[in-house]
């Protein structure tokens, strides 16, 4: 089990994966709106998505867990 951690603060604009998806390192998991930019948030590791902890519109801070992989 591994956690995907947010690297910067912002508001979730889009969730690009679903529970059960197999993702690879570098895949875009979320788009985060921050500093008036649409910033792709990429997975630092690969795995199967077990849980997504955020919804569109949520504020996430640097260091928050956004998803859990198996």
């Amino acid at each position: 089990m591994a956690e995907l951690i947010s690297s910067m603060a912002g508001v979730v604009a889009e969730v690009k994966v679903n529970v059960g998806d197999t993702i690879e390192k570098g895949d875009e998991v979320l788009t985060v709106e921050s500093m008036k930019m649409m910033i792709p948030f990429e997975a630092e590791i690969g795995g199967v998505v077990k849980e997504i902890k955020v919804d569109v519109g949520d504020f996430i801070n640097e260091g928050d867990v956004v998803a859990i992989l198996e």
């Binding site: 500093m35 801070n61 260091g63």
Partner: peptide, 10 residues
């Protein structure tokens, strides 16, 4: 550059 990051964390 959009600027320096803002927010309580930084």
């Amino acid at each position: 550059v959009p600027g320096f990051m803002i927010g309580s964390a930084v």
